[in-house]
């Protein structure tokens, strides 16, 4: 189970990370450190490499070079152990439409070896406010409800790190508010979060440290306390224009 990462300084340390798909270089030397409980937001235009970066950090795809340490362990050498510490919420829900919400959560509980999974499923369903719909098929849910079950899926194993890849895509304002409420529940204060987003306002509101990724490189990095939203907008425009 997650939340047993004890490194005092950082939970994620990425050094010289690159990823290429054939001749196309999606990530070009990413260096990043994430401290325990820190909320990092990564902005960037389409094709900047945000999803690729999160997919590599989640252990879904392998990097071409560089090292990733999560909780002091190398992702490349201890992939299964490290993936146990990570929860992923994407714009895709990772849910099987023909199964009920309960069956989906039960399936993922087995994959993550969640102890007393029935209790935990009830717990996470209550957190996302979906207890009454647990035994309905996911395909009958609205996009917002599917995303709430997707969050429940990601919280099942109490991950120490949450990777959120544009989780707001396709959600209305109410569903977005519910999404962030949910993510702040269930021990979120101990959890490190890396969020990718197009939405500068929302990202600025949520994040502690803000990064801009463009063409596979981190082109701008700042702590929220050091600038305001207008400053972020200007910095975003300048940094993405300069790198073009």
């Amino acid at each position: 189970m997650g939340q047993n990462i004890t490194s005092p300084d950082w939970v994620v340390k990425v050094t010289g990370l690159t990823k290429s798909f054939g001749n196309q270089r999606a990530l070009r030397g990413i260096d990043l450190e994430v401290r325990p409980g820190e909320f990092i937001v990564i902005f960037g235009p389409n094709g900047a490499g945000k999803s690729t970066l999160l997919n590599v950090l989640a252990g879904i795809i392998n990097p071409s070079s560089g090292s990733i340490l999560i909780g002091g362990r190398s992702l490349q050498d201890n992939a299964e152990e490290v993936r146990r510490q990570i929860g992923v919420v994407s714009h895709q829900t990772f849910l099987y439409g023909n199964l009920t919400a309960y069956e989906n959560l039960e399936f993922y509980s087995r994959m993550y070896d969640v102890p007393r999974c029935e209790e935990r499923i009830e717990e996470v369903a209550a957190i996302v406010g979906m207890t009454s719909r647990l035994h309905d098929r996911v395909s009958t849910f609205s996009r917002g409800m599917q995303q709430r079950i997707s969050i429940a899926r990601a919280l099942l194993h109490k991950p120490a790190i949450m990777l959120l890849d544009e989780p707001e895509t396709g959600l209305d304002q109410q569903a977005i508010a519910m999404l962030w409420e949910t993510l702040h529940a269930d021990g979120a204060e101990k959890r490190s979060i890396i969020l990718t987003s197009h939405n500068l306002e929302r990202g600025f509101e949520l994040g502690e440290r803000l990064l801009v990724l463009d063409k596979g490189k981190i082109v701008y990095e700042v702590f929220k306390k050091d600038l305001d939203l207008d400053g972020l907008k200007t910095a975003y425009q300048q940094s993405t224009r300069v790198s073009q």
Partner: peptide, 18 residues
């Protein structure tokens, strides 16, 4: 095909299984 819909294959690959 069911694994590709809603990115379920990625979901499986993010699990701590080989």
């Amino acid at each position: 095909i069911p694994e590709k819909e809603q990115g379920c294959l990625e979901g499986l690959m993010a699990c701590p299984i080989s």
